[in-house]
Simulated assay, not measured.
Amino acid sequence: MPIDTLKASKRLKALGFTEEQAEGIAELLNDTDAASATKDDLYALESRLDERFERIDERFGFVDERFDRIDERFDHIDNHIDKRFGRVDERFEQIDSRFEQIDDRFDALQADINERFELQSTRIDERFNAQHAEFKNYVTSRVAWAAGLLALYITLANYLMG
């Protein structure tokens, strides 16, 4: 909206400005008015901005569609990976089951070995004790035999000598 410089100059003079000051300020206001925007200018700018935002929205709509497709691909890949991990988990469960079976067999074998060891230990102890008793009897009988022979020799020696 243009400014009436003559009217502005008269008002400034009435306020106490010199003619030269009043005209300078009026010209300055007129120059400033040329750089200011009217309502129509603002509506035109708003319209242009709306058009640009619509174009940007369209472009982002395309980008959103691409992101949606990428998300779908990631979901597909994620499902595929989940299925594969599920199969791997099943295999690990099978392996765990086999290890449990092996552990059970190992425990049974260990128990059998311990039982056999105890049985063999008992048999060895019994045989050792029997051999020990037999050896004791043998030694005792030999000592008794030797003592009897000694007594016989002493008795014979006493008889013959005396």
Rank of each mutant, 00 (worst) to 15 (best):
residue 24 G to R: 14
residue 161 M to R: 15
residue 43 Y to H: 06
residue 33 D to T: 11
residue 120 Q to S: 11
residue 12 L to E: 02
residue 158 N to V: 01
residue 71 D to A: 14
residue 28 L to I: 07
residue 5 T to V: 05
residue 92 F to L: 15
residue 101 Q to L: 07
residue 67 F to T: 09
residue 67 F to A: 10
residue 56 I to T: 14
residue 58 E to F: 00
residue 66 R to H: 05
residue 2 P to R: 15
residue 139 V to F: 00
residue 46 E to G: 01
residue 112 D to Y: 01
residue 6 L to K: 15
residue 146 A to P: 02
residue 20 E to H: 10
residue 114 N to D: 14
residue 145 W to L: 13
residue 134 E to Q: 04
residue 51 E to T: 13
residue 143 V to Q: 02
residue 115 E to K: 08
residue 116 R to K: 04
residue 113 I to R: 03
residue 142 R to F: 01
residue 118 E to P: 05
residue 65 E to N: 07
residue 134 E to K: 05
residue 66 R to I: 02
residue 33 D to E: 10
residue 3 I to P: 10
residue 152 L to C: 09
residue 110 Q to G: 10
residue 21 Q to K: 14
residue 8 A to N: 15
residue 95 I to C: 04
residue 140 T to Y: 00
residue 49 L to W: 10
residue 139 V to T: 01
residue 156 L to T: 12
residue 23 E to T: 15
residue 152 L to Y: 09
residue 4 D to Q: 14
residue 123 R to C: 01
residue 25 I to K: 11
residue 13 K to G: 01
residue 160 L to C: 09
residue 70 I to F: 10
residue 107 D to M: 08
residue 91 R to Y: 03
residue 122 T to C: 04
residue 148 G to T: 08
residue 28 L to A: 13
residue 109 L to D: 11
residue 28 L to C: 09
residue 134 E to T: 03
residue 143 V to D: 00
residue 53 F to N: 13
residue 84 R to E: 06
residue 136 K to D: 00
residue 125 D to C: 05
residue 84 R to S: 10
residue 153 Y to P: 10
residue 157 A to K: 12
residue 142 R to K: 06
residue 41 D to I: 10
residue 24 G to C: 05
residue 51 E to D: 14
residue 80 H to A: 07
residue 68 D to P: 14
residue 117 F to Y: 05
residue 19 E to H: 13
residue 138 Y to F: 03
residue 61 G to F: 02
residue 157 A to R: 13
residue 34 A to E: 09
residue 40 D to W: 00
residue 85 F to W: 03
residue 117 F to A: 05
residue 104 D to N: 10
residue 7 K to A: 01
residue 75 D to L: 13
residue 68 D to S: 11
residue 52 R to V: 07
residue 4 D to V: 07
residue 80 H to K: 09
residue 146 A to T: 09
residue 122 T to S: 07
residue 39 K to A: 06
residue 44 A to D: 04
residue 37 A to K: 04
residue 60 F to C: 12
residue 99 F to G: 09
residue 98 R to T: 14
residue 90 E to N: 07
residue 21 Q to P: 10
residue 139 V to Y: 00
residue 162 G to M: 04
residue 66 R to K: 12
